[in-house]
Design a protein around this nucleic acid. Sequence first.
DNA 1: CGGCGTTTCTTGACTCATTCAAGAATTGGC
DNA 2: GCCAATTCTTGAATGAGTCAAGAAACGCCG
Lengths: 141, 141
Amino acid sequence: MGHTDYEQLLRGASLRVTRPRVAVLGAVTENAHADTETILGAVRERLPDVSHQAVYDSLAALSAAGIVRRIQPSGSVARYETRVGDNHHHVVCRSCGAIADVDCAVGHAPCLTASDDNGFTVDEAEVIYWGTCADCSLSQG
Amino acid sequence: MGHTDYEQLLRGASLRVTRPRVAVLGAVTENAHADTETILGAVRERLPDVSHQAVYDSLAALSAAGIVRRIQPSGSVARYETRVGDNHHHVVCRSCGAIADVDCAVGHAPCLTASDDNGFTVDEAEVIYWGTCADCSLSQG
DNA sequence: CGGCGTTTCTTGACTCATTCAAGAATTGGC
DNA sequence: GCCAATTCTTGAATGAGTCAAGAAACGCCG
């Protein structure tokens, strides 16, 4: 993806096209599941003087627009990804915090319907699989 | 549940029975989905001088032993519950943060098996349903 | 192209849940 | 009851994230 693609994504969401936002969008695309600090570092390779606040603001704007998804497993800081709208989920390593994508477990998004919604209007189901990644399994026996 | 029940729960998990732990276990039982500060408040009704650190330590010990479950939806502080081992999930209100229990969506824990585990050894699937609670739906039209 | 209102960015201070550390008290086995 | 190990108290520190005020950038409109 080039700059123009990111620009169009932003314009399509009625967001102003600013250099920090384009850079943040690029950084999230190239660093799936990265935390804010990693994204800040990646953004500063292109725009050395962006403030951390601009990155926080951009991530918030992009998340609100649905262009990026924010995930935050227990015990982790916020992480971001650009793969949105396909109902995929995540496996998280309890040991090192590594995250990988998994497609919906049982085919046709069955988890989207709660059996009893307690009066809530549910619009999304988020599934987090907890376990141990291959590396940690090896190093721990 | 009385003190002796909590004591037996603790002993059964090979945990020392201390007054803070018994009080924390009682507070979590009586305040499902409460955050740490609420639990601290509830504990201090019985033990006015417990330190916040004792509550943090107790919650960590109880969580590690599997007696309480820690949950932390994005954007929320840590919350705790004693309903464990029955594979239930949660609905979270995007507006006010309210949490309610939901039983597993499709009967026999289908969400527990990821379609592709990326080399991870998965031991638990956590489902969070996001939406709007009844109160917030009303007040927002 | 140039002005203008609005949005966004910079700078820097601040919040607050959670963790860390050192020493005192408690627990439970003997 | 005594002792070693664990847990609690006290108080400071950490760090992701937020708040606020003024400067800069965006993009609409003429």
